[in-house]
Write a protein that binds this DNA or RNA. Structure first.
Length: 552
DNA sequence: ATAGGGTTAG
């Protein structure tokens, strides 16, 4: 390093930094030039450090630590960096360190980042401590402080506290009003939210978009669209929110219409339309959108690639899977991030490469619930039920708590593989150890499991005790089991219940009719046919999987 | 330098 750069030169060099290596070089210039105590330069350095390496708080912290007496400006930056990238405990120890020996007084810039860190993990107690500290420092009257507190209490579902802050503020702006309105929306209080929306003196894009999101969340797409249309200037967020709403409602035609109307699509909107297609079982469309995106020379981000991998898993295309993996290998993608790693495992398992899925799974730094489920399901698909059960227990042993989806996956696996005892044990585990109440899907799995092994009576006893309105699927599964076991008496009983719960479902009539037919009780068969036509029910014609891929 | 709005996996 032959030159001694002037501080302004260092600063302009700093702004070009991309990698840790670049930063190291600039840092060396700072030290060489003896600028380590230059507060302004160090402040810029910390900011750019974090922009380049968000997860790495050690480097900016080290640079900060070499400053002998950092001013409040520097402290605030470092605290913010920790609040956005490090565990809450670290943020608080830094805050304590500042208060004890920092020779500085926290100001109105110090607290909002701490509050935000608390709201991101719903740490109510800790947030109250910060609130109290801010009051002691006399900064509670600041608009930023008030707005972050409203957001915090809203996210912690402490709406009364949020109101108290809101009402106590002497100056409010759009952010304060919007945060309060979002608090009302999150509490499901649409009336209060609507009142806030109408009464607030000024709205900006975030306000309008928050209201659209609230309506979308309620499933009220008509009013969401109305607000969208009334909005003075719709931006990418407005479009994307509505696209997400249409996608969740299964209306991909409307989602696509919105998407096509956007004149400046950003990565998030591309991600939203792709995940919409994936959610609605249209993986081919998702892949097509990905192609359009690449035609425009846009670089996909991790969100988009996760959706693409999910689409690939649905297609089961090993060629595409290999392409995606090599594509990601060449780019700046972190395949160890939980969502990405889980998607990779799932894609490989569903595209037939269990060896690759296993390798990726075992190489993960920490295997999370979703990756475990992907692996268990993969083993199930490949007929390796016993290994799937073993993996499920390893997951629990590793301290990962199964949720309802995980239990559905493992129970389906047991049913698929005919592992009756194992399935029953898992079901007991769910209800006893984890005290979860089984969903209709769980009951349906158990009914299939017991039914397959001929224990239709046991299946009947299991679901008789739970309210049947919510368990039509399980009763349907039981009727199917009665059919395959040829149990006419139980079949009749089950069908009678189903006819009450789902009078429109022709499938139940057909199943019972088949049970009668197999028992050669033709009178009952024709009797049932008559009842069906009286109700105007017709069996929906079945079609093969191959036919269903090319719908009319 | 600080606060509010949209996208990801089983």
């Amino acid at each position: 390093m032959p030159f001694r750069l002037s501080p302004p030169a260092i600063l302009s060099l700093l702004k070009t930094c991309k990698t840790l290596r670049d930063l190291n070089q600039v840092h060396a210039h700072i030290i060489r030039r003896g600028c380590e105590q230059d507060h302004y330069l160090i402040a810029q350095f910390l900011t750019i450090c974090t922009a380049a390496q968000p997860a790495n708080v050690r480097y900016p912290t080290a640079a900060f630590n070499s400053v002998i007496s950092p001013n409040i400006y520097l402290w605030n930056i470092l605290i913010k960096i920790h609040c956005e990238n490090a565990p809450l405990s670290g943020c608080f120890s830094l805050f304590r360190r500042m208060r004890k020996g920092g020779n500085v007084v926290p100001d109105k810039y110090t607290f909002p980042s701490l509050i935000k860190a608390c709201s991101s993990v719903s740490a109510l107690r800790e947030g109250r401590v910060v609130h109290a500290a801010a009051v002691r420092c006399g900064t509670e009257g600041d608009v930023f402080m008030g707005s972050s507190l409203i957001d915090f209490y809203g996210k912690c579902r402490e709406i009364e506290s949020a109101w108290k802050v809101f009402d106590g503020m002497c100056v409010r702006n759009e952010v304060s009003w919007t945060a309060m309105m979002v608090g009302c929306l999150d509490c499901g209080d649409m009336d209060a939210a609507g009142k806030m929306f109408d009464e607030m003196p000024k709205k900006n894009d975030a306000t309008w978009n928050a209201m659209i999101k609230g309506l979308v969340k309620l499933g009220d797409l008509v009013n969401a669209r109305k607000v969208f249309d009334e909005m003075p200037a719709r931006d990418a967020v407005s479009f994307t929110t509505l696209i997400g709403g249409y996608a969740k409602a299964g209306d991909m035609a409307a989602a696509r219409f919105m998407f096509d109307q956007m004149d400046s699509k950003d990565l998030v909107s591309w991600s939203a339309i792709m995940s919409g297609y994936v959610q609605n079982g249209k993986p081919g469309e998702a892949v097509k959108v990905f192609g359009e995106m690449r035609d425009r020379n846009l670089k996909p981000d991790e969100f988009i690639l996760v959706s693409l991998m999910s689409a690939c898993a649905q297609l089961g295309s090993s060629e595409l899977a290999r392409w995606i993996e090599s594509y990601m290998h060449e780019g700046p993608y972190d395949t160890m991030r939980p969502h990405v790693a889980a998607a990779l495992v799932d894609m490989n398992a569903k595209c037939g490469d269990m060896a690759r899925a296993t390798k990726l799974f075992e190489e993960m730094p920490r295997r999370d619930l979703v990756s475990y489920c992907s692996m268990i399901q993969g083993l199930c698909i490949h007929g390796r039920g016993a290994e799937a059960v073993a993996l499920f227990h390893r997951m629990i042993y590793e301290g990962v708590r199964p949720d309802d989806v995980a239990f559905t996956v493992i129970l389906t696996t047991c049913s698929h593989a005919g592992l009756v005892d194992e399935g029953c044990r898992v079901f007991d585990l769910m209800t006893e150890k984890y005290s979860m109440s089984p969903s209709p899907d769980h009951y349906a799995c158990m009914v299939n499991l017991l039914g397959k092994s001929g224990r239709v009576k046991a299946a009947y006893e299991l679901i008789r005790s739970v309210p049947m309105e919510s368990h039509a699927g399980a009763w349907g599964a039981l009727l199917g089991a009665c059919r395959s076991q040829g149990d006419v008496e139980l079949g009749e009983m089950v069908a009678k219940r189903l006819f009450q719960v789902e009078p429109q479902n022709a499938g139940n009539y057909v199943l019972l009719s088949n049970i009668y037919a197999e028992a050669e009780r033709w009178l009952n068969v024709s009797d049932l046919r008559e009842r069906m036509s009286e109700k105007g029910l017709r069996k929906v014609p079945g079609c093969s999987y191959l036919d269903s891929t090319t719908p009319a």
